[in-house]
């Protein structure tokens, strides 16, 4: 048996924790900042100082706080040892923190009048590092800048850590903040989706531990669509995971999609055309959560027993999917 998912948690516009996500209340918030959009799915119930306290959160940015928070929600359900790892995906870290740091350097009386305490938060590995520091997780701690491929990347990387014995169990997930800077960057990239803020993690471990598995990870396949054919490349990934699992396309009961608009959504639809699965799209509930899309697809699929697929496509040309066997 392959690695299994035995626990999960999430923070999103639905609220904090798995129960809030299951309740699935759809509620985008109106924005009154300088963002290009009028609304976003904000994780308003997650108030950093209420959730984590005031000690150690003074300089902490929202991305890292979301990571600390969501891992804290997950850990009571699992066993932790010295080899428990954390593998988180991101697009570019906190673009807001990076912008503010650079703005201070550009606008203050001296270019070095910056807040040194905010520097480590500007680095992409801050969320994973902070989660480990806060919760004392000393195993492998890795950040993968996978963009929209993050969900698949962290599962595959986490499974490799388990296969090589480097980790006993891995917290796999991703974080995406909402911020005006992210909104403007997405705007300039041509996105018109309603952005969301969220963090979701699953606990990946070898089968046969004390916890009953929620799902088995049967396989991850990704390709780079070097010739521009994203649909064909994604279809090839789908074939590969099914073939390796000895399954047929018609066996897939649920598919969670990731692309909301444009060429990538067209490619995703084309690649999935031969499946007769029911389709779920977490973005309808929590908005476009960027790098966190994949982990949210996975936790959404945990509701639907049977074979399930989550697909991913990134504008950088990478596509792929994961095949899960969700247990009832």
């Amino acid at each position: 048996m392959g690695p299994v998912i035995t626990a999960w948690s999430a923070i999103s516009s639905c609220g904090v924790g798995s129960a809030a996500f299951e309740a699935g209340l759809v509620r985008p918030s109106p924005l009154d900042d300088e963002s290009p959009g009028a609304k976003a799915f904000l994780a308003s119930d997650f108030v950093v100082r209420e959730a984590l306290g005031t000690k150690g959160t003074g300089s902490m940015d929202r991305s890292s706080a979301l990571a600390v928070g969501v891992v804290g929600e997950l850990l009571p359900a699992v066993d932790v040892d010295a080899r428990t790892g954390v593998v988180l995906g991101t697009t570019s870290g906190s673009s807001q923190t990076q912008l503010e740091f650079t703005r201070d350097s550009l606008t203050r009386r001296k270019p070095y009048f910056v807040n040194p305490a905010s520097m480590p938060f500007a680095l992409m590995n801050s969320a994973a590092g902070q989660a480990a520091i806060w919760h004392k997780l000393t195993g492998p701690n890795t950040t993968i800048a996978g963009g929209r491929m993050s969900g698949l990347s962290v599962l595959r990387y986490g499974a490799r850590l388990l296969a090589t014995g480097r980790s006993s169990g891995v917290v796999c997930g991703a974080v995406e903040e909402y911020s005006p800077t992210r909104a403007w960057l997405e705007h300039h990239r041509g996105a018109t989706t309603v952005l969301g803020e969220g963090a979701a993690v699953v606990f990946l471990e070898p089968a046969g531990t004390a916890r009953p598995p929620l799902a088995e990870v049967l396989g991850v396949a990704t390709r780079v669509a070097v010739d521009g054919g994203a649909a064909g490349a994604l279809a090839a990934c789908l074939c590969r995971v099914l073939e390796r699992a000895g399954a047929e396309a018609e066996d897939v009961r649920t598919v969670a999609v990731s692309a909301q608009e444009g060429e990538l959504a067209d490619a995703e639809r084309t690649a999935l055309a031969r499946l007769r699965a029911s389709v779920v799209d977490p973005a309808e509930v929590i908005g476009d959560v960027g790098a966190a899309t994949g982990p949210f697809q996975v936790v959404t699929l945990l509701r639907s027993p049977g074979l399930a697929v989550a697909t991913a496509l990134d504008p950088d040309g990478t596509v792929g999917c994961v095949l899960l066997r969700v247990l009832s």
């Binding site: 991101t90 870290g93 680095l123 992409m124 590995n125 994973a128 701690n141 890795t142 950040t143 993968i144 800048a145 996978g146 990347s153 595959r156 990387y157 990704t222 780079v224 990478t318």
Partner: peptide, 8 residues
Amino acid sequence: DVSTIATA
């Protein structure tokens, strides 16, 4: 399998 690893 492509990955950009961002562990500073």
